[in-house]
């Protein structure tokens, strides 16, 4: 459906007047205006799941915090993206992630190119108040070109979504639940034996941390994600 002229909404984000199309999210509208809201599971070109909770914002008149990545704009909305409370929650969310698995930045292949590291720094995270959990987690290097290191995984499911939505292979999925959740290839077979993996490497490129990386390029190579919005744009024929 092509949005009609009346489908334009005006709202306020952090006190700034913003106009947006009705099908846009608060995140879209804010970023268009150059306002930054932190995200981790969101990636332009992939479907949103609202899982990382970093983009939670306050909306006047609503007691619940809502994820900016999936909440549509509404006429007259008054959105706050930065507040003491939100910053505290975001810091705690990041701390929970750092404490959850074994993110040893100094020896991580993604050191210097890691979304989690950048978010931590941006939120003034100089230490983690929660006890580190140190789970014993495996690595799978059975694929010819790629490696998955579960110690660094934040379960953002970007790999799952890019593989399903863009590549159409649906090699990746999540198994188990809660703190024991893990991304898996096929039905938890070694990646190298996967029948569905096309070795396209998109999962590696969208991974925000050092959980997925390319063999032999393990030294400080930034990931390239430009293909995603491009593919999405071409598909929608916009």
């Amino acid at each position: 459906m092509t949005p009609a002229v009346s489908d334009v909404k005006t709202l306020q984000i952090d006190g700034i007047d913003v106009s947006a199309q009705a099908d846009q999210t608060i995140l879209d509208a804010a970023r268009e205006k150059g306002l930054s809201i932190p995200t981790l599971c969101h990636l332009d070109g992939l479907g949103d799941v609202g899982a990382c909770r970093l983009c939670l914002v306050e909306i006047k008149g609503t007691s619940k915090l809502l994820p900016a990545c999936v909440t549509r704009v509404e006429e007259g909305m008054e959105v706050t993206t930065q507040s003491e409370r939100l910053l505290k929650y975001r810091r705690m969310t990041l701390e929970l992630l750092f404490a959850e698995r074994n993110h040893v930045c100094s020896v991580c292949v993604a050191n210097g190119h890691c979304d989690l590291q950048v978010l931590g720094q941006a939120h003034g995270l100089t230490h983690v108040q929660f006890p580190y959990r140190y789970p014993k987690l495996p690595m799978d290097a059975s694929h010819d070109r790629f490696v998955v290191d579960h110690n660094r995984c934040v379960l953002c499911t970007r790999c799952v979504r890019v593989c399903d939505e863009v590549e159409g292979a649906h090699t990746w999925d999540v198994m188990s639940r809660g703190i024991g959740s893990m991304v898996i290839t096929d039905l938890h077979q070694p990646w190298g034996e996967s029948d569905t993996c096309t070795s396209c490497g998109k999962c590696v490129q969208v991974c925000p941390t050092g959980a997925l990386f390319e063999k032999g390029k393990a030294r400080l190579v930034a990931k390239s994600r430009d293909f995603l919005p491009y593919l999405a744009m071409m598909r929608e024929g916009k």
Partner: peptide
């Protein structure tokens, strides 16, 4: 000292 942005893990 406020080390926000000055250094990071790793």
């Amino acid at each position: 000292p406020d080390l926000t942005g000055k250094t990071r893990f790793g």
